[in-house]
């Protein structure tokens, strides 16, 4: 379907050979050819699958297909809003998102600032590599390690608590510990990786600025405050907006692995709910509606953040 739209566009262009557009196309044909693969990627893997969203408005049955499944209007959305779990899931999602922004987001910036101040290049590189590594571990491994460490039976943390004469804590089966566990795992895994863009931005800062500041007698801390941070402000804002775009993408795998009967009240988020209600129980339409709702909330938040950024004189992402 998407492909036919493309060809029809081309043929329209062909009918007016003298149009400015065509001349531009011909002139820059190498550039346009180069974006073609990317364009097709988005068309095939992002835009065409989006038609699948129509099943959110259907009572989708796999054997009837998209074309023959009965339409039900907004029934699936109505069911979502009437679902007793809905507000709990929404608030869990927003709380985890808020924690992400407050506790995780500044960490890579701080790390990058610290790394930037390291004078010995060799040492800096070693540290950088070491803190990247967790990013390449799958959540299954990270959650398993957490389980082994925090288990009440033989877990090293509890053994240490016991050795110090303190009471053992059942971290895994306690709803209060879920959120700290979640955020610490994210920081451990992603903080190092997150420094890359900041470090790149810092490397691009004109060294003359620092030289001038040193001449004026600015301390290292002053240089950081008045040169480094303002120079990467644009990058920070951009990454913040992108982060907000992920507002409801809290990492299905991680949360699903941590989720259990005892912490469901704080750990069930949209992603895990879509999975349990949809894939595991075959309610395709309903879970698509849930996912759709989530995407719309995400989109609104991104637009709002972008608008705010522009208001504040920053560049925004579009």
């Amino acid at each position: 379907m998407g492909q036919s739209a493309v060809t029809s566009k081309v043929s329209i262009g062909g009918s007016k050979p003298k149009s400015a557009l065509l001349r531009r196309l011909v002139k820059n044909r190498a550039l346009y050819l180069m974006i073609l693969p990317g364009l097709f990627f988005f068309l095939i893997f992002k835009y065409i699958p989006m038609f699948g969203l129509v099943i959110a408005f259907q009572d989708y049955k796999p054997y009837l297909g998209v074309l023959n499944s009965p339409w039900v209007g907004l029934d699936n959305f109505r069911r979502l809003f009437e679902e007793p779990m809905f507000f709990r899931i929404l608030s869990n999602t927003l709380i985890l998102f808020g924690m992400n922004l407050v506790f995780y987001f500044p960490v890579p910036i701080l790390l990058a600032l610290m790394l930037n101040e390291v004078r010995r290049n060799g040492f800096k590189r070693v540290v950088q590599t070491l803190i990247y590594i967790p990013h390449f571990m799958s959540w299954v491994i990270i959650v398993s390690i957490t389980f082994v460490m925090l288990s009440v039976d033989r877990g090293i943390v509890n053994e240490m608590l016991a050795a110090m004469g303190l009471a053992k804590v059942n971290f895994l089966l306690n709803a209060d510990w879920f959120r700290p566990m979640y955020i610490l795992q994210i920081i451990w895994r992603e903080a190092g990786w997150g420094t890359i863009i900041y470090l790149a931005a810092m490397a691009a800062i004109d060294p003359q600025l620092y030289e001038a500041a040193r001449m004026d007698g600015a301390s290292r801390f002053r240089q950081m405050w008045h040169i480094t941070l303002p120079s990467i402000r644009g990058v920070i804002v951009m990454l913040l907006i992108l982060k907000i775009g992920d507002v409801l993408e809290l990492g299905f795998e991680q949360v699903y692995l941590l989720l259990n009967s005892a912490n469901r009240e704080v750990a069930e988020i949209f992603d895990t709910y879509v999975y349990t209600a949809g894939l595991k129980q075959g309610q395709y339409s309903f879970s698509t509606a849930v996912g759709f709702f989530k995407s719309i909330v995400g989109l609104i938040l991104v637009m709002a953040a972008n608008w705010l950024a522009k208001k504040a004189g920053e560049e925004g992402i579009y």
Binding site: P62, Y63, G245, D271, Y284, S287, T288, V290
Partner: peptide, 11 residues
């Protein structure tokens, strides 16, 4: 953001 994570596969 729009590409829904759900199983929007075409059956």
């Amino acid at each position: 953001a729009l590409s829904v994570t759900a199983i929007a596969g075409c059956g």
